[in-house]
Design a protein around this nucleic acid. Structure first.
Length: 434
DNA sequence: TCTGGGGTCCTAGGACCC
DNA sequence: TCTGGGGTCCTAGGACCC
């Protein structure tokens, strides 16, 4: 058929490269003592498990579990625990992506540890070998092990990746190209392992007798659309082999920027929270300047610990800024004005945050008649601050209101060195003992 | 003692317009 | 008593992702 030939020629092939236990693997790269040990990485404040090495998974540690609940497993199985070191992980991520970009420029960096490659045009028989080549190169050049799934749609590439992760047979690479193997793969994939099916849809689908990905592909379009909307229908079409999710190599500007933290210990003093909120505001402004935008709307929120029995208070306030800005001083002063309105004495605050939205490009800001700020001068100041921060380190210069006490700071008791981003943390090797 | 942080997209419903 | 038709814009909330 004419149509068939057309589709054959157009058919794309995607490879999803996904780092194995990424954060845990980063810790292992620079610390050979960790090899073959169970390693876990904790969220900020040393709260929950956010990464587990293969050995840690085998030990029965679950994703997202609070660390204090699994103290006994950690002790019994000699699990090596680390506080999240995002400076290290971010830098390692860049290295991995750099290696991938040597293979193709058609690269979509999807998250810190995942990228899609458009590898259309290769012969089907070459795909596995090519995947192995990518895998070996990334491992050799960065020390990070990856798994690769290959298919005609991104969602199927995800399925392939998932299976390759679990099955030793695949040696880290699986391609799902022919109908038979796709069907087998879908049947063995629990429906909640499908990319786009979360907790709610999982419950819903199961209560309707759909337990695996294959069954999901057999549901009717109208039923899917009714209950899972257009996004759900796209997922199902992708599982059927029909590409619906676009491949996008350009990094889109963010539409919202948020900086928020839980405090290491609960805070009751206004001054402490003001320090924290000012620091978050400053961080937001940095991120905003980084993408050359100005924000028109600013939100501040505070909350008490939702798990404790103490009185609870959750609140947020939003302002429309008179002139859209990315100036740290302005964003800090609006943030503390909002905090002043929000703050109520007597509560034990656990978390606060600053959110910026309604962005416009720096060059298109509407001036106000009553604006009495010298914006050119302020912009020069900001770019000087940014330059100092990027060469000499963050917070070398900062606003006084951000404070120095940092009583709100994170708990990070098991932080590893920043092996790749701080001179003083570089590894020393004693040649006499090698 | 101890439970993360930062995003995206879509939909329904209300307000408002002619 | 009856009570159109068609549209836009905005917001809150829900779902998902890593």
């Amino acid at each position: 058929m004419h149509g068939d030939i057309y589709i054959k020629q157009m058919e794309k092939v995607f490879a999803l490269v996904d780092c194995n236990s990424f954060y845990a693997s980063c810790e292992k790269v620079f610390n050979p003592k960790l090899e073959s040990k169970a390693v876990v990485v904790l969220s900020n404040n040393d709260g929950c498990i956010i990464a587990r090495s293969e050995e840690a998974k085998t030990a029965g540690i679950k994703m997202g579990e609070p660390a204090f609940k699994i103290r006994d497993i950690i002790e019994k199985k000699n699990v090596q625990v680390f506080s999240a070191n995002f400076a290290l992980y971010g830098d390692m991520s860049q290295r991995v992506m750099n290696v991938l970009s040597k293979f193709t420029t058609d690269l979509e960096i999807y998250s810190i540890d995942e990228a899609f490659l458009d590898i259309s045009g290769l012969k089907e028989s070459e795909l596995l070998l090519y995947g192995q080549q990518i895998r070996n190169t990334v491992l050799q050049w960065t020390g990070i092990p990856v798994t690769i799934g290959i298919a005609h749609t991104k969602t199927l590439a995800k399925v392939a990746n998932h299976i390759a992760k679990k099955s030793g047979k695949c040696q880290g690479v699986l391609s799902l190209m022919d109908e038979k193997s796709i069907e087998k793969a879908l049947e063995s994939t629990p429906v909640d392992d499908v990319w786009g099916v979360g907790r709610q849809y999982n419950t819903f689908l199961r209560s309707n007798g759909i337990y695996n990905a294959l069954a999901l592909t057999k549901a009717s379009d109208s039923w899917i659309k009714k209950h899972m909307h257009i996004v759900g229908l796209r997922t199902v079409e992708e599982l059927r082999g029909q590409p619906c999710i676009s491949f996008d190599m350009t990094v889109a500007d963010k539409q919202a920027i948020c900086t928020s933290r839980s405090f290491g210990t609960p805070m009751m003093d206004y001054a402490d929270i003001e320090e924290a909120v000012s620091t978050f505001a400053s961080r937001c402004a940095e991120k905003l300047r980084h993408q050359n935008s100005c924000a028109g709307v600013l939100t501040v929120f505070v909350m008490t610990n939702r798990f404790s029995k103490d009185p609870k208070y959750v609140n947020g306030k939003t302002v429309q800024l008179p002139v859209a800005t990315n100036n740290t001083a302005e964003i800090i002063s609006h943030s503390s004005a909002l905090l002043k309105l929000l703050f109520k004495k007597g509560y034990k605050y656990k978390k606060a945050g600053v959110i910026l939205t309604e962005f416009i490009p720096e060059g298109e800001v509407q001036q106000s008649l009553w604006d009495n700020l010298n914006r050119d001068k302020q912009n020069q100041l900001m770019s000087t601050v940014d330059k100092i921060s990027s060469t000499m380190g963050r917070d070398v210069v900062k606003f006084a209101i951000q404070g120095t006490r940092r009583r709100w700071k994170l708990r990070q008791e098991k932080l590893s060195p920043c092996y790749t981003t701080k001179w003083q943390d570089l590894l020393n090797i004693d040649m006499d003992r090698v």
